[in-house]
């Protein structure tokens, strides 16, 4: 437990606020990589996911590609991208890697959200005369929003943890403390930096949890509480009671 005290002492020492290696600067860089990558993942994956969810086409392809993307080792992808793009563009290399990491989760959230909508609801919307576009915008997207945000949530968590590796290709972020501390065996520094990353992850997780709750349409919540029976009521008896 002494180690924890040392790590806390390292975190709160006044030196952490000084110079180019100051903790707030590194936190800023870490969050910057995370948000840019998450944004790019969302721009790529959300329209694609909605297309798959609405048309029900290409789901198998998306699942297979997502599985393959998950199998790609981030470290390998990062090193090869860094070599291909050169040290000057290491930031682009890192963001590409984090986007590859984030896209599968966001994609799954987007199409699962649209597909989670009861087909009867979609049919009802169609029967009311909504165009396909209106069905997507006014029915499927709002009802599926919590699942989409769930996808963004898991993507954000994976990216914020993996952004640690950015320091290995000469970038900043909180990983820089860990990489410089490994050869020196400075466990207090490693633990201190790890604690900050975990804190960031928890903060992001809490933020998305709140968004997820806010995004649930009121009608969906109301239906849950009213405990509407999923099955039609038993048909009324039509047989006339036989007269004795």
């Amino acid at each position: 437990m002494n180690l924890f005290l040392d790590a806390i002492a390292w975190l709160f020492s006044p030196e952490r606020l000084e110079g180019a290696n100051a903790l707030p600067v590194r936190i800023g860089e870490h969050l910057y990589y995370t948000f840019v990558s998450l944004l790019v993942s969302a721009v790529i994956a959300i329209p694609l996911g909605y297309y798959i969810g609405h048309t029900r086409k290409g789901r198998e392809v998306a699942v297979a590609l997502s599985g393959a993307a998950r199998a790609l080792p981030s470290l390998g992808l990062l090193t090869v991208m860094a070599l291909l793009l050169g040290p000057a563009r290491a930031d682009v290399a890192a963001i590409i890697v984090f986007v590859v990491l984030g896209v599968p989760s966001v994609l799954a959230g987007a199409y699962a959200g649209v597909q989670s909508v009861d087909p009867k609801t979609v049919d009802a919307a169609r029967a009311m005369g909504m165009t396909e576009w209106q069905i997507l915008m006014k029915v499927e997207i709002p009802i599926g929003l919590p699942l989409l945000i769930g996808g963004l949530r898991s993507a954000a968590l994976q990216i914020v943890a993996t952004a640690t590796l950015a320091a290995y290709v000469g970038l900043g972020g909180l990983g820089i403390y860990i990489f410089t501390a490994i050869p020196l065996r400075q466990y207090d520094v490693m633990l201190g930096a790890a604690l900050v990353i975990v804190a960031l992850a928890l903060l992001l997780d809490a933020l998305f949890a709140v968004l997820e709750r806010l995004a649930t349409p009121r009608g969906v919540l109301a239906a849950k509480h009213r405990n509407i029976s999923a099955r039609p009521n038993r048909a009324r008896e039509t047989v006339e009671p036989s007269r004795a």
Binding site: L3, V160, T164, L165, G175, I178, A181, A194, I197, L202
Partner: peptide, 18 residues
């Protein structure tokens, strides 16, 4: 969920002293 957010690199370097 909390355990999963620990960066793998950090966990690798922290387990030995712990």
């Amino acid at each position: 969920g909390l355990l999963y957010t620990i960066p793998s690199l950090a966990l690798f370097v922290l387990l030995p002293p712990l």
